[in-house]
């Protein structure tokens, strides 16, 4: 009996420690997000007080949408660049992933391996030649330039993720349709794509998030016209000082859509990154 009571007390103690640890983790994860969210509604004078009680204002949001910041245009740039990148990359990646999933071919392993290995290349080595090329072509500071380089990050990811989804789709209905005389292309469009559609959407969202948050390419290749949000927020660090309340407001603008998208695809998020190695 005495031993049981001791064990129970030890378990209670451990429960308490566990709860305390989890509360600490929750605090560490959420606090920076909540603090930046609060800051977005503060007047500059309230910044120094570190208070959570203040008169909230929407002025910061009004300011960043007005001249000279025009964050609306920056938001639009991000939308166009991420959208176009996904639109080009996903169809091409789906076709390639299908071929990798269904067919045998010489050098298949080596080819697939090469596509995957490109993910490990540092962006900074890719951007040097592109910077020089776009400078010669007069394409610096354009959406097109950003879309092209972002394809470098997104396409290998997309092929990898989509192959995982396609491998999980059974092949019987494809074979049945082929026996009935349908061509392979018809089969892909009419049967495979509808079946793997959730996977396509998840991959597209994943690639959209990657492109939306991309910083290095945008920093080097854009100046005024094509600046995207991650570079846009650095503009609030001016010669007159850092405008933290505006940074926070712009930070909300860039993060909210991504919080929403990432929560929607959370379960697949991990798989996309580790390529099915972790199930």
């Amino acid at each position: 009996m005495d031993r049981n009571a001791q064990a129970r007390r030890r378990r209670m103690l451990w429960r308490g420690v566990e709860s305390a640890l989890l509360l600490l983790v929750l605090f560490l994860i959420l606090f920076p997000i909540l603090w930046m969210a609060l800051t977005a509604f503060k007047r500059p004078v309230d910044l120094f007080d570190l208070t959570v009680f203040f008169t909230p204002t929407l002025d910061n949001f009004r300011t960043i949408f007005a001249h000279p910041w025009n964050i609306g245009q920056t938001f639009l740039n991000s939308l166009v660049v991420a959208g176009l990148t996904v639109l080009v990359s996903i169809p091409a990646s789906t076709l390639a992933a299908y071929a990798f999933s269904r067919f045998e071919m010489p050098f298949k392993g080596a080819l697939f391996f090469t596509i995957l290995a490109t993910q490990f290349i540092p962006a900074v080595v890719v951007v040097l030649p592109f910077y020089l090329l776009f400078r010669d072509l007069g394409l610096l500071d354009t959406h097109l330039a950003l879309v092209v380089v972002n394809l470098a990050i997104v396409t290998p990811f997309a092929v990898w993720m989509l192959k995982g989804f396609l491998d999980a789709v059974p092949t019987e209905s494809e074979e049945a349709a082929m026996v009935d005389g349908a061509t392979r292309l018809r089969v892909i469009i009419d049967i495979v794509v509808p079946m793997v559609w959730p996977g396509v959407v998840v991959t597209a969202v994943f690639c959209f998030i990657l492109t939306w948050n991309e910083f290095l390419f945008a920093l080097i290749l854009t100046r005024d016209d094509a600046v995207t949000l991650p570079v846009g927020i650095t503009r609030f660090r001016t010669e007159r000082g850092d405008l933290w309340e505006l940074i926070a407001a712009a930070g909300i603008l860039i993060s909210i859509p991504m919080f929403f998208l990432s929560s929607v695809i959370q379960r697949h998020f991990v798989r996309g990154m580790t390529g099915g190695a972790v199930k």
Binding site: L22, L26, I29, P32, P230, I233, I247, S255, M258
Partner: peptide, 28 residues
């Protein structure tokens, strides 16, 4: 309860642009 709440917020930091993470920590 604490466990599922924590699990639900685990994805949030990863959705924040690294550039924004950097500038936010600079502020904090």
């Amino acid at each position: 309860v604490l466990h599922s709440v924590t699990r639900a917020v685990l994805i949030l930091p990863f959705a924040v642009s690294p550039a924004l993470v950097g500038i936010s920590f600079r502020f904090m």
